[in-house]
C-alpha cells in the first residue's frame, strides 16, 4: 500500500497546539475515527513517548508517532497532523511541524510505505516547512502527491551510486 493510499483523507492542519502530547493525540484520534486503531492505541502512542523519550522525532521537523501492533492496531494506515507554528518534542529535531502517525496490525515491513517515508525524511526540513505553509488538507494531499510522484520518477532515472 502506498503512502497516499494509506493516508486517505486523514490530514489535519492546525495553527498551534498546547504540547507535543496534544499533537500526538490528535494524530491518533484521526486513526481511531476511521476504526484503524482502538482508543488504547492512542493512549499508548503518548505513553511510549513519555517513557522512551522523544525518539519519534526522527528527522528535522518530522515525528512519527505510533504504538505496538498489539496495542490496538486494527488495520494499516497513516494520518498527518501539521502544526504550522511548530511544537517541541525535546528532541534534536525540534521544532516539529509534521507528525506522520501510523498503525500496523502486524510487523511486516510495508516496503512501499517505508520507501516513500525515506524519500520524505531525506528532505524533511524542506517538506516540513512547505507543509506548514499550506492551509487545507486538500492542498497538503496535492503537495504530497506531486512530491512522491516526482521522487518516483527521480529514483527510477538514477540512484545515488555510493
Amino acid at each position: 500500500m502506498s503512502f497516499l493510499e494509506a493516508l486517505d483523507e486523514r490530514i489535519r492542519i492546525l495553527e498551534r497546539v498546547g504540547s507535543w502530547a496534544e499533537a500526538v493525540r490528535i494524530s491518533g484520534e484521526l486513526l481511531a475515527a476511521d476504526g484503524l486503531v482502538t482508543p488504547l492505541y492512542v493512549e499508548r502512542m503518548i505513553r511510549t513517548c513519555e517513557e522512551l523519550g522523544p525518539y519519534i522525532a526522527i528527522a528535522p521537523g518530522i515525528a512519527i508517532p505510533h504504538a505496538r501492533p498489539e496495542d490496538g492496531a486494527r488495520a494499516f494506515g497513516l494520518s498527518i497532523v501539521v502544526v504550522k507554528e511548530g511544537v517541541s518534542f525535546g528532541s534534536h529535531n525540534d521544532p516539529v511541524y509534521v507528525l506522520i502517525a501510523f498503525a500496523t496490525p502486524d510487523r511486516s515491513a510495508h516496503i512501499e510505505f517505508l520507501r516513500q517515508l525515506a524519500e520524505i525524511l531525506a528532505r524533511s526540513e524542506e517538506i516540513a516547512h512547505a507543509l506548514a505553509r499550506l492551509e487545507t488538507g486538500e492542498q497538503a494531499r496535492a503537495f504530497l502527491r506531486t512530491l512522491l510522484q516526482e521522487e518516483d520518477s527521480a529514483s527510477r532515472s538514477g540512484e545515488d551510486p555510493s
Binding site: 511510549t48 517513557e51 522512551l52 523519550g53 525518539y55 519519534i56 526522527i58 512519527i64 505510533h66 504504538a67 505496538r68 501492533p69 501510523f102 500496523t104 510487523r107 515491513a109 510495508h110 516496503i111 517505508l114 520507501r115 517515508l117 525515506a118 555510493s162
Partner: peptide
C-alpha cells in the same frame, strides 16, 4: 527503537541497503 516496530523497521531497511551497496 522503543517499540521495535516502525522506526526499527525503517532503520533495518536503510542499514541493509547501505551495507549491501
Amino acid at each position: 527503537c522503543g517499540l521495535g516496530t516502525g522506526t526499527a523497521l525503517y532503520l533495518k531497511m536503510t542499514v541493509e541497503e547501505i551495507l549491501k551497496k
